[in-house]
Design a protein around this nucleic acid. Structure first.
Lengths: 333, 333
DNA sequence: CGGGGATTCTAAACCGATTTAGTTATGGGC
DNA sequence: GCCCATAACTAAATCGGTTTAGAATCCCCG
């Protein structure tokens, strides 16, 4: 199959490429009504579709943005991706989704490929280990927005959760219910990934603000597959925790699985709150109290920040936007 | 910031563009060891990244494929996307994910945009309402693979579930447990979406093969938000069903939510099986028996089929591949 | 009827790579 | 020292659009 190019259209319509190009760009004032019709018909007849690659080469803009998520397995990631896709669809942009698998090497590879492909901007959940790369994009004035995680020293626009508040909401709730032995468990914090650290810090601060000294035995940061072990260790303590805060949805799944397996009753034997809402929270038995991230709002904000960098509208915003989580109060605590 | 092009590299290294291009394409036999080193150093020094857009224009290949899912809200879609992304990452391809939202108009828009962007191929969960578009891609010999749904008359390579078997596994299990009044509920079947139809057909056939006449009152196809109503209607029947087959994960969620709200006990008051595994199935109370789609296997197969069309390796495969589901036997039935 | 501005249209350069055909340099054999 | 094959390199065309500067045509008016 021979592909139809602008030259074919021009020849058929007996006008120059230039005029066809003007037509494609809707600059109708540069041609007579008659030629406009003629071109229109020819395009229809030949079933012509402009080659965006060729256009992009000249215009240096691809109407495509990259989204590099650290780990696509989190519900939060997929919610955000979906909302970003929606937002950009409205704007006539495509998004290229990349999953870095929490692997800085892979992240680097993706970022370089995206830039080579001349995407107009990138939204990235940074793994945190490619400072030079981030730095370069920044100094190249390449549009970039960080999501979920910040890297303080870089001054890059960031959208993330108020993680400190997220933990506080949960801990306050536990305390309100009369628990004092409160544990927290999150996935591993290699590379100082900010949300995990902040959630732990928020947890500590909230305890202290209630006059409860925190106990390091109640804090676990482990890989997903080691969660059952960590939980067992909790229950072997002299004073096992009365409440557990699960640091994200994957941890929550593992916690619930463990409790089910060991026939530990929630909330009577132990209270549970999860950070990140999960689809089944409202009909699980018991229903699960969660701290919800406003994923769609966050995604929209990130998309908006990126778009304004791309269009160079408004002055540069390099601030860290922290959105507020909400406690979805249910029965697991 | 000025972008560095191949010309800059050529000038700096005091060789021609052609030679630099040969270098970029690793055709080192066309140059001396010395110039190779020289170019290497220059590229390093200038921090040069080739512009893939320019390359694509000439080579007519973008190393990018499109994935158009009908509805990204299904767990199955996200599992498949993830696996496809993985597969193509290994091959040095990017994927552009598009969510058609079950809307043929949007699907059309996306397909046209993807083709305009010169993607090398498309994997699509067809909404089923753009026959002319599918037809054109086919006759253009544009690489395309259907996923999840088939459109018989088009002869396009397809990867989908053996939906008939999926229903049969569930119905057989229900019958084995002694139930005869078995209902099925799926989301709406506008546009003859094949999996839903096949699941219902499989349900009917299995009942009949056991000598149970099927009762049309036990079959509901409704939008997600009308599921509670449909369920209520079941329970108002003279003989309410003893077992319900949920046609996909979203339906299953709604069914479980309803049972929870109305304090209907699974499996004592009613047995439930879901098609599509869900993350919480193994620790819900009760654990949920599901019919699982081999999502990763299906994704890999689809990716492989697409890649072989792109590379024109092997002869054309236009067959419909139906993979077998498995029953994950748990306690909800 | 000629001048001049507006309208309509086009030729050619350009974007940044690849590729082909061809040129120049090198060195070995006699 | 000359010839010639091979190695090393390059100029120019090309991909399919956009854009700019300028050319051709039209029309109105004095």
């Amino acid at each position: 199959m021979k592909t139809i190019t602008i030259t074919d259209v021009a020849n058929h319509a007996k006008v120059s490429k230039s005029t066809v190009s003007q037509y494609l760009n809707k600059r109708y004032e540069y041609m007579s009504e008659k030629t406009r019709k003629k071109i229109e018909e020819t395009i229809e007849e030949l079933n012509y579709q402009p080659n965006i690659i060729a256009r992009s080469l000249k215009q240096k803009s691809t109407f495509t943005v990259g989204v590099v998520v650290a780990n696509i397995l989190h519900t939060f990631s997929t919610q955000v991706i979906r909302a970003i896709e929606n937002y950009f669809y409205e704007q006539g942009f495509h998004i290229i989704v990349c999953n870095a698998d929490d692997n800085p090497e892979k992240e680097k590879n993706y970022i370089e490929m995206l830039r080579a492909k001349q995407v107009d901007g990138i939204i990235i959940f940074p793994t945190g280990d490619n400072l030079d790369l981030y730095q370069r994009m920044k100094s190249d004035q390449f549009p970039i927005v960080f999501m979920d995680r910040t890297i303080e020293e870089l001054n890059i626009a960031t959208v993330m959760l108020d993680n400190h508040l997220a933990s506080k909401l949960a801990v306050d709730r536990f305390i309100e219910k009369g628990f004092e032995n409160i544990a927290i468990i999150t996935t591993s914090i290699i590379r100082d990934i900010s949300p995990r650290i902040e959630r732990i810090q928020g947890y500590k601060d909230s305890l202290e603000s209630h006059g409860i000294p925190f106990n390091s035995e109640y804090i676990k940061t482990v890989n997903a597959n080691e969660i059952p072990i960590a939980l067992s260790e909790f229950f072997e303590l002299e004073k096992p925790p009365q409440a557990i805060l699960a640091g994200n949805d994957i941890v929550l799944n593992e916690v619930l699985r463990y409790m089910k397996q060991h026939e530990i009753n929630i909330p009577y034997d132990i209270a549970v709150i999860g950070i990140d809402d999960v689809p089944y929270a409202s009909f699980y038995t018991p229903t699960i109290t969660t701290v919800n991230q406003p994923a769609i709002e966050m995604a929209n904000l990130a998309a908006e920040l990126l778009l304004s960098q791309i269009n160079k509208t408004g002055k540069e915003d390099t601030s860290v936007h922290r959105l507020k989580p909400t406690l979805l109060s249910r029965n697991s605590c």
